[in-house]
Design a protein around this nucleic acid. Structure first.
Length: 480
DNA sequence: ATGTTC
């Protein structure tokens, strides 16, 4: 029997902004950035209940935030952002990062326009498909031993580049330079099972909503910023959306198990056991963050290897190169410094299905992007648009914005309503080349199962979280 | 998301 929670009470609080006043165990209010249409409304959708639950985490400051693409997730909503004050016993929660640790997006810019590659798009997609292991399970392009895997976990994309998989400039265009140096995959943090799964999947795409797309810059909203990021209208790009595969999933599973036990020792109570958490500055909290960083490094190395596969496919079919625009995660907890009530505080910022969006002038930007701001990469649904955004001064929610379209139908529901073969034919008829894995996999990712990406970005921009730079549309898609 | 149910 299903028991439906009482509807969460929300009030309008400005442009594309709703507020959930504090009640019950909430330590801070909830803030939801959305239009009326984007608010979770399906019966049984408990995303807003999850926003309320997150507001009860020990040490949480500001608000429990939800982005316009928010939907139900494990403990935390996907599209949720919450920060805790580390020095005040603020917690870290694996549920606030998600199972696909450091899942993220990479955008590559080709030195050619659509017309130039149009005659060879089929051959290009064939080559990309052939070189990109995808779907559930094994499939690596870089076969390494345990010692090298340990270096991947410690050094991320930097290690891949050191071993010849990429160029130095790639690292300059990765968040954190492609490596979280606090990673520590010591035994007890990253187990044998996680390592075993990771060894067989380096350079693979995965499944679900992960994809590799050849895209065209369809609309440039801000020419100067787009140019500073290396993009002009009509240009061909590659967008890669994937994460830490089975390794990240296994690390999350293992950490959630141990954290559930540790939580009781700290006397922490949470409204949902999926919000298991411990103080970020505790032995168990530091263990989680070190293991999470190792998984994040794997994800960044993985995207680096997928980049090299794409470069090889472009070189052999169309004879063009690919420059990295940026690589950004949307599933991560980060220790960051922010102003809270007039004081500088160290916060553990959880972004789960939410993207960091640094404004122009932020000290963490690479020098050649200092004036433009951080490229914020928003993958849309298969067959629809994707966006390049940037951060804004005084960006809300600790400089965060949306991460994608946001699912509104379950995979099961989508698969029941859509015929994968027909969907593929429709995409091909619209000129979008498709290299999929299974018909069911395609059906589960049908555009109708997601919110409208244009509406999500309009809400994120309207709420003052980010600014549009360019809109990209697919020419061909390789689906996991 | 995930060797799609340890």
């Amino acid at each position: 029997m299903t028991q439906h929670a009482e509807r969460v009470q929300i009030t309008e609080a400005g442009a594309y902004r709703y507020r959930i006043p504090r009640h019950g165990a909430m330590r801070v209010p909830g803030v939801v950035f959305a239009s009326p249409e984007l608010l979770p409304q399906a019966a049984g959708d408990q995303a807003l209940d999850q926003v309320v639950n997150v507001a009860a985490l020990p040490g949480v400051v500001g608000a429990s935030y939800a982005m316009p693409d928010v939907h139900w997730g494990y403990g935390f909503p996907i599209g949720g952002v919450a920060a805790t004050d580390v020095a005040a016993g603020g917690v870290v929660s694996p549920g606030g990062v998600g199972f696909d640790i450091s899942c993220g997006v990479r955008l590559l810019a080709a030195d050619c326009d659509r017309a130039e590659i149009a005659p060879r798009i089929g051959a290009l997609l064939d080559a990309l498909g052939r070189r990109t292991p995808r779907g559930a399970g094994r499939g690596a392009v870089w076969h390494i031993g345990r010692r090298d895997l340990d270096r991947v976990l410690r050094e991320g994309a930097r290690h891949a580049v050191e071993r010849g998989h990429g160029v130095q400039r790639d690292l300059e265009r990765c968040e954190d330079g492609g490596v979280l140096t606090e990673a520590d995959p010591a035994a007890g943090r990253v187990g044998d099972r996680a390592r075993e799964r990771g060894l067989g999947q380096l350079g693979s795409l995965g499944s679900g909503n992960h994809f590799l797309e050849v895209q065209e810059v369809e609309t440039v909203h801000d020419e100067a910023t787009a140019r500073a990021m290396g993009l002009v209208a009509g240009q061909v790009c590659v967008m890669i959306h994937c994460g830490s595969r089975g390794l990240g999933h296994q690390i999350c599973t293992d950490q959630v198990r141990t954290m559930g036990r540790a939580m009781r020792r700290y006397g922490i109570e949470v409204p949902d056991r999926q919000l298991a958490c411990v103080p970020a500055d505790s032995p168990e909290g530091r263990d989680y963050l070190a293991a999470m960083a190792a998984a994040a490094n794997y994800a960044r190395a993985n995207r680096q290897l997928l980049t090299e596969s794409s470069r090889a496919a472009f070189a052999e079919t169309v004879g063009h190169g690919l420059d990295l625009v940026y690589d950004i995660s949307h599933n991560l907890a980060k220790i960051e410094t922010h102003r809270v009530d007039g004081e500088t505080r160290r916060l553990c910022v959880h972004r789960k299905g939410a993207t960091r969006a640094l404004p122009p002038g932020h000290p963490e930007l690479p020098p050649d992007l200092a004036e433009a701001g951080q490229p914020v990469l928003i993958p849309g649904t298969m067959g629809t648009a994707s966006y390049l955004l940037t951060g804004v001064p005084d960006g809300d929610a600790w400089h965060s914005t949306c991460h994608g379209a946001g699912r509104v139908e379950s995979r099961h529901q989508a698969a029941r309503e859509v015929n994968g073969g027909r969907l593929r034919a429709e995409l091909e008829a619209r000129g979008i080349a498709v290299r999929g894995t299974t018909a069911r996999g395609l059906a589960e990712e049908a555009p109708g199962a997601y919110k409208d990406i244009d509406a999500v970005v309009t809400a994120a921009e309207g709420a003052g979280l980010c600014r549009r730079v360019a809109r990209l549309v697919p020419l061909g898609v390789v689906k996991g």
